[in-house]
Nucleic acid binder design. Structure first.
Length: 441
RNA sequence: UCCCCGGUAGCUCAACGGUAGAGCAUUCGGCUGUUAACCGAAGGGUUGCUAGUUCGAAUCUAGCCCGGGGAGCCA
């Protein structure tokens, strides 16, 4: 390793440029774009924290001018100059460049493929490793990071302990979704987890209030803007908790995440031109609608839904359009929910379940509810769902040894962040999306 | 798995039965305040693949491949 050359001036990040007006400073980054006007150049630099326009004249700084003239896009540079407030520059500041060190010059014969104009989705996804350099994508990834951080801070503040769930699992957690099968050691088969839920039920019985936060895999052949084959899920579980406890935790969590992004990532929200006023309204309580009532709302809106139907994208969109906040739909028919869901004592045809539907048509971001605590009922359900009982013996142990009422939910990180960012597609909110028919790069 | 839509220059698209084009990008030239700068010039194509219809196919037909959106399923 060779030591970087130490410039004589202070090294700053572009996001802090405004604090250095009048000073001569150094920025380390990349040439994002450049315009020419005779003996003036207007390079735009980016460093990951933002972009800033530079200006350099041949007359004043011939060496810097010649270093930048014709320099291909995305060449890496260390530039030194004076920061000035400048209304004509986007961002309000610009750097009068006096010195340029080219770290790596991009080849003229292989120019940087991503231009500042529009590209097709396929083209961009094939170059996702470069696409994330654009200001919009970088801002989205910072918002995702804020969402993850604030979610963990909130969960811990509520007394929940993070207990990581395994990625390799012996069998289906729910039996409904398609699993990725992998070869384990010595001809054994294992499956990539499709939910940490069963494991978090075990850790809840050990630690009380817990959650898991990690990747989840679904081999569903879903080709929509709301689906990934690999996505991140936060799953709380609490012993002695009931449906209403989880509804309150869910709205508290979602509100905390949204408000943290609004507060700490304002600049990024502006970069992606998100309407912040819509996010500021996301505070508890969220509207609650029973499944029974949701059917009535749908029928009123002219939707052909009838009792017993599950909600698809259209139905979710109709329901979410009724409110400015996420809406909680609770007590779905038991028949459409997973085998481990508890039922309502008053109405055995209903499950003690809830979904949270994001506003603006972003779909279900939370699904959860109260779990079946009774051993005999659970065994009966396993058989009804044709699930391999051997693989679930450890899970049944949780009902053999001190079973208690407990509840939890799963929050889909990408759908939540896609809604917060207002992105067209969920693939933009994860650094390297894994989708049906796409595992590159 | 099913249903729709698409595949033409590096990129975004036009041409819809009669010699394959534009803008951007690239290269060269011009310009001292540009905002996806602008002006001028040049290079750049086996129209996804394979058959077929036709005097003639980017264009019509069939099959296949690849991608996008949606349904089902789900976060």
């Amino acid at each position: 390793m060779t030591q970087d050359k130490q410039p004589a001036t202070t090294i700053i990040t572009i996001e802090d440029a405004g604090k250095h007006v009048g000073s001569t400073v150094t920025i380390r980054g990349w040439l994002y774009n450049q315009r020419e006007s005779g003996k003036l150049l207007f390079p735009i630099f980016r460093d990951g924290t933002g972009v800033i326009q530079g200006v350099v004249s041949l007359k004043e700084h011939a060496e810097a001018f010649n270093a930048l003239k014709g320099l291909p896009q995305e060449s890496s540079v260390i530039v030194t100059g004076t920061i000035r407030a400048e209304a004509r520059a986007t961002g309000g500041f610009e750097m009068h460049v006096s010195n340029v060190e080219v770290v790596q010059r991009v080849s003229d014969s292989e120019p940087y493929p991503i231009q500042l104009k529009e590209h097709g989705v396929d083209f961009l996804l094939d170059r996702r490793h470069l696409w994330i350099r654009t200001p919009r994508q970088a801002a989205i990834l910072r918002i995702r990071a804020e969402a993850e951080l604030s979610a963990r801070i909130y969960m811990d503040s509520q007394g929940y302990t993070l207990t990581d769930a395994p990625i390799f699992t012996p069998a289906a957690c729910e039996g409904t979704s398609t699993l990725f099968e992998v070869n384990y050691i010595d001809d054994q088969k294992a499956y990539l987890t499709q939910s940490g839920q069963l494991y978090v039920e075990a850790t809840a019985a050990a630690l009380g209030k817990v959650y898991t936060f990690g990747p989840t895999f679904r081999a569903e052949k879903s080709k929509t803007r709301r689906h990934l084959t690999e996505f991140w899920m936060l799953e709380p579980e609490a012993s002695f908790a009931h449906l209403e406890d989880m509804v309150q935790l869910g709205e508290g969590l979602v509100s905390a995440v949204v408000q943290s992004v609004v507060k700490n990532r304002t600049r990024e929200l502006e970069t992606i031109q998100r309407d912040i006023s819509k996010l500021e309204k996301i505070v508890p309580p969220f509207p609650r609608v029973s499944y029974d009532d949701a059917i009535k709302v749908l029928q009123k809106a002219g939707n052909p839904a009838k009792w017993g139907d599950d909600f698809g994208g259209d139905e979710e969109t109709i329901l979410s359009k009724e409110f400015e906040k996420p809406v909680i739909i609770h007590r779905y028919p038991a028949a459409m929910k997973a085998f481990y869901m508890a039922t309502d004592e008053q109405r055995p045809d209903l499950s003690l379940s809830f979904d949270m539907i994001a506003p603006e048509g972003y779909g279900e971001i939370i699904g959860g509810g109260e779990r079946l605590a009774n051993y005999d009922t659970l065994v009966k359900r396993l058989r009804e769902h044709n699930l391999p009982e051997e693989a679930f013996q450890w899970y049944l142990d949780l009902r053999r040894y001190g079973s208690v009422p407990h509840a939890g939910f799963g929050l889909g990180l990408e759908r939540t962040v896609a809604w917060i960012c207002g992105t067209e597609h969920i693939r933009e909110v994860i650094p390297f999306p894994r989708m049906l028919y796409r595992v590159y790069p």
